[in-house]
Nucleic acid binder design. Structure first.
Lengths: 170, 170
DNA sequence: TGAATCAGTGGGCAGTGTGTACAGCGAACA
DNA sequence: TGTTCGCTGTACACACTGCCCACTGATTCA
């Protein structure tokens, strides 16, 4: 069946990539400034942005919050084993109620759920973990601390790749 | 020693939280509109934003790209074991050269590096993994597929928590 | 081959937001 | 008690936005 997204309309072209890169580097600039930097008409930039948003490539323009700056300097990845008879949903709801849980995925392998949590300190992490395993749908929790961020989250290289990889042949 | 961030200036107050929430929900609105919605003066919003940026709480306002919309619908977490005698740096550099690697952390536990990668399909994931283990600094790679996103990445609850947790007593 | 469609261009217009400055005011602090 | 700091309200010049139009060039379709 492919997928909802697989059609992709037309793939990204180099202007899309340059636009995304520009906005990533200097997010506060407006459409007009973009058009000047990219050497195209303002309407073009506007149309490209509309299309990228409509296609879902650009999800939002929200502020990017740094948990560390809020005092949450410890990051950990937890793999949970759950009582499968109750389903993932209940556990996910429980996790969602804990602010320190930043994201959660169901996974393959020996565990059932993987989540990313933050805490104020290693000691504070214990409190968060206690909260998570306090729920009786959670059987086990194995914790992996993130020591240093070798590659901070990034998408730009992927965007560039997506544009070149799907470039139609001659 | 606390940490670089531990001082935190003053903690977030409720206006900060409401501002961040507002900008998250409707990122395209400007400072003036924010001030109207929040019922404060425009200068106040401007000052708060400046402070939040200066403190590093708001990292940027960049566009949030959805890899799935680019055709990268498979997400996986890889745990790498590396030749430690060469250090993490070389491996991290290698990983950084692969667009499908979205982030990477050094970790505690039996592995050395954990990274998040995306690919166009399960078959395509093999290609990405081959690229990663093709580098001889990488000894082993254990792969965990992310099946479903139970909690998409979020920070808002944490922001609210940070504000209430540090609220000064009466 | 001719018609239609679509993306891009360049221009204009009214309305609105931005950057910036300034004076006044209340609360916190020394 | 005086100072500092954050917030308010106001003002002004400038720039940008959203929206419109007419025109061009390329591609698709009949």
């Amino acid at each position: 069946m492919g997928s909802v997204y697989s059609e992709q309309g037309r793939p990204l072209d180099s202007l899309d990539v340059r636009l995304i890169r520009l906005l990533t580097d200097e997010p506060r600039i407006g459409v007009l400034e973009c058009s000047r930097r990219l050497g195209v008409a303002r309407g073009t930039v506007q149309a490209r942005l509309d299309r990228l948003s409509a296609r879902g490539v650009i999800r939002r323009f929200g502020p990017d919050i740094d948990p560390a700056a809020l005092g949450y300097q410890v990051t950990a990845f937890l793999v949970l084993e759950i009582r499968q008879e109750r389903g993932h949903r209940a556990v996910a709801d429980h996790l969602a109620s804990i602010p320190e849980v930043l994201e959660a995925h169901t996974i393959t392998g020996s565990g059932d759920l993987m989540c990313r949590v933050v805490s104020r300190s290693n000691a504070d992490l214990q409190r968060v973990i206690d909260q998570i395993v306090g729920y009786d749908g959670v059987l086990r929790c194995s914790t992996t601390l993130a020591l240093a961020e070798q590659i901070p989250y990034r998408v730009l290289p992927l965007v560039a790749e997506a544009a070149t990889a799907t470039r139609p042949g001659p």
